[in-house]
Design a protein around this nucleic acid. Sequence first.
DNA 1: AAAACAAACGTAAAAATGACGTTTAAAATT
DNA 2: AATTTTAAACGTCATTTTTACGTTTGTTTT
Lengths: 245, 245
Amino acid sequence: MKFEKITNISVDCVVFGYDTISKSLNVLLMKRYLESDKGSDILVNDHVLTGYHMHKNETLDDTATRVLKELTGLTNQYKKQFKAFGDPNRLSGEKDLIWIKHEGFNLRTITVAYYFLLKTEDVDLKNNKYQKQWFPINNLPEIGFDHEKIIFEAYEDLKIKCLAEPVIFELLPDKFTINEVHEVYQSVLDINIDNRNFRRKLINKKYIIPLDEKQVGVSKKPAQLYMFSKDIYKKMFQKNYLINI
Amino acid sequence: MKFEKITNISVDCVVFGYDTISKSLNVLLMKRYLESDKGSDILVNDHVLTGYHMHKNETLDDTATRVLKELTGLTNQYKKQFKAFGDPNRLSGEKDLIWIKHEGFNLRTITVAYYFLLKTEDVDLKNNKYQKQWFPINNLPEIGFDHEKIIFEAYEDLKIKCLAEPVIFELLPDKFTINEVHEVYQSVLDINIDNRNFRRKLINKKYIIPLDEKQVGVSKKPAQLYMFSKDIYKKMFQKNYLINI
DNA sequence: AAAACAAACGTAAAAATGACGTTTAAAATT
DNA sequence: AATTTTAAACGTCATTTTTACGTTTGTTTT
């Protein structure tokens, strides 16, 4: 067994979820367990991303999709492969059994990292076999391996992506209010945006479609609900070339 | 040997070079050779990217930098890791000796792909041990493996990058004219841009600095030379948040 | 001196942005 | 039933940026 693999490939997934109630961008992490030599699990006092090794005949995308499915039960979420991490020393700080086993053999573990976008509420935390939990992006717990670096780089990529494309709607329910979009942008980009100007800009987009519905169950004036039309967006953006330097 | 590796990692490099004379964005490719069993090389009638396997104690970035150095002699060029390719069937069309050897063992080759930006003229094609050659991005020859897909995805990433950041100057000499910048943008983005409006927009940027120099050796009115200041750009762009959706 | 021609400048209307103040509609309270 | 409360929604105006063009200028070549 020891000699079978010198290079080890895994896929790690950063799951971003937006919580409309607390208005925060969260990351889904799980408590870290290690297999001990005796077969029982050892709990380490930190959190990590979910990652798995690739199955035979699986593409990288397949593996990422499978990881998300196993973790959350969800499929068809927005997914982006954003970086591969392969420093020879990326796990050198670890003193765990699983790595020590291979130490003499110059084991290198390369991970291809993905991030997913979804709504916090879509994940059922009951029946929690992975001990998974949401953490706000700006208040993370102790993170194992080099996963803090991976989360940070995923977040940087996400911010840039949000400025260039309407991926923000992946973090919101199908029907949303303008103020909700406003709040997600502020949370994700970590900046203040003038609500009135933002509202005007958004409402003028042809792919932001007002519905014949309003919020229900709110204790103040209920807000107009809108939806985002990916189709209209795609048609409009064929010839966009705003050089933004 | 056969059992040592089941997963194979390599780094492939898409080298983009802009040619100020022909005004085209080019890709550097090399003729494909294979090692035969008898030790001599077999020439295949197509072109491929340059890629290598990682050395021990090398980061992915190190490997990419080494590949470029060996291919072109250049260091310190703009470099971006843009995607990992790991489909189990990505090389399945290949009937080459080197792969057939491993066929029974379900060999998977994952490649981490980078692209580089530089000036065509900086690469010396004399003493050409790799039989490397520039090809215009929109007139590529027959490409081996799945490298056409990799080139295409690199180009898509480059276009998006150019819209968001001033990486275009990596393709130009230190001193350039406004018209040259105009031409690179048109070549890379494959669109027409009004020259007068473009000129005004660029000249108004504080990080585009006019020099006390003009073109020499041109047969018409010589143009003003400019330079790009990365320092000024960085200082100015700290708080930019133009949501461009 | 004149011609040729790319480089460089100009202008005016339209659209987008930034920074604010004001009104409105529904629910809750009196 | 009227009043209060408060978030939602609209409005304005000055400034900046963009779009779509026409015109002038400065070298080199003829």
